[in-house]
Amino acid sequence: MSSISFGGLLRRPEAGAALGLIAVLIFFAIFGGITFLKPGGMASWLNVAANLGVIAIPLGLLMIAGELDISVGAMVPFGAMTVAVISGHYGLPIWLGVAMALTFGVIVGLVNGFLVIKTAVPSLIVTLGSLFAVQGIVLGLTVLITKSTSVALATEGPAKLIFGDFVLGGQLQVMVLWWLALTALYVFFVHFSPFGNWIFAMGGDKVSARNAGIPTDRLTMILFVLSSTSAAFVGMCQAILYNSAQVAGGQSFIFNSIIAVVVGGVLLTGGFGSVVGIFLGTITFAVVTQGIYYTDFDRNWSSLIIGILLLAAVLMNNTFRKMALSYAPKKGGKA
């Protein structure tokens, strides 16, 4: 049918994100030249995008399913600190540290999911609680164990290569490869496999989804586990990359990933969005924060651009969504 037409493209959830990215690219090309599109410049924003993107996609899926997880802000330092304390402070094998960091990610995800399912308290509140609780655990335990808020970690061998090294000429973090691979995996599962449908159905109307036989509770658990484990994974990789972990930091991931997801066309109330959109939204965000260095502007202005971008993206996405809703091949579509 007309699904390849221009109108058809505009009705897709990622339409706003694509246009936003193009606008941002043009903006920085005019004011900063095309340096940031050359390999060296690209690495700077690709690294930012990759670390953000690995968290933003599962977070975006949670938002599509009608939930939210802000505890990712604490899971990044938690993951980093776990691997640093186990493999750095205690000097145990790196793989044990990696396994423990991911296990803690799974556990916090299970707790979040369980609380959301059982208490029906909005997930914003539940994960706000776990955000602070986990921050407390990280700070308390780290100081208790190491008497310090910063722990060094030296990694060698395959673990370094897989999780925290630079590739392709030494500027690109290996995380970029993880990000691309995970994005491809998510695209397949969300948009091509039959299961992706369940996430959208859950966000659209949870009761109807459950009545249609979708295991909504289990799906909620899986999505929470996915987001907090992804955050722990990013933290762990950063600790391995930078050879140290700090108890603070990570909070920026909360808002940054939400911005990337919303710019990417995901509806905050759930039921609408796409992985490609989140992917594009993440790149847009990264280009704005890094592109500013290639212009003559003071970098303090980048938050202003992001703020405007966010509002513009939401308004644009609303418009496109209305177009999608009112689209009818003939007469008769009422929004």
Partner: peptide, 29 residues
Amino acid sequence: GGTFPLMSIGRSFFVGVEPAKGWGPFKVY
């Protein structure tokens, strides 16, 4: 209606029992 406003008619119709083609883990909606 028990239907999902932001899903396509086809996807909404088959929620929970999505038809798939392909094989093994590569089943596609």
